[in-house]
């Protein structure tokens, strides 16, 4: 899986998160921040993670989720790391 594929998958996930700021959704990059740029409350991050697991048919490690940052690249990294380990 490439970083671009992971990012595209996250964008698909974010389209299902109704609270995401529509303007922020148009210009998502790996530097985008779920909270600062997409206007999401921190409680939504676990929903993004759970939906990303479903999107890529992966299961993330609980410790990795505990340490996860709020930038898109953090989730991209986690997706790639978990996919490689499988």
């Amino acid at each position: 899986m490439t970083r671009e594929e992971a990012l595209a998958g996250i964008v698909e996930v974010l389209k299902t998160i109704k609270m995401a700021n529509p303007k922020g959704l148009k210009n998502i990059t790996e530097e985008s921040d779920f909270i600062a740029d997409l206007g999401l409350p921190s409680t939504e991050l676990i929903n993004i993670v759970a939906k990303a697991e479903d999107q890529f048919d992966l299961e993330f490690d609980d410790d990795d989720i505990d340490d996860l940052g709020s930038k898109v690249k953090d989730t991209v990294d986690l997706i790639l790391k978990t996919a490689e380990a499988n």
């Binding site: 409680t43 939504e44 993670v49 759970a50 697991e53 479903d54």
Partner: peptide, 9 residues
Amino acid sequence: KKSRSIGGH
């Protein structure tokens, strides 16, 4: 499934 599969709400 993991507990988080239902989301945070």
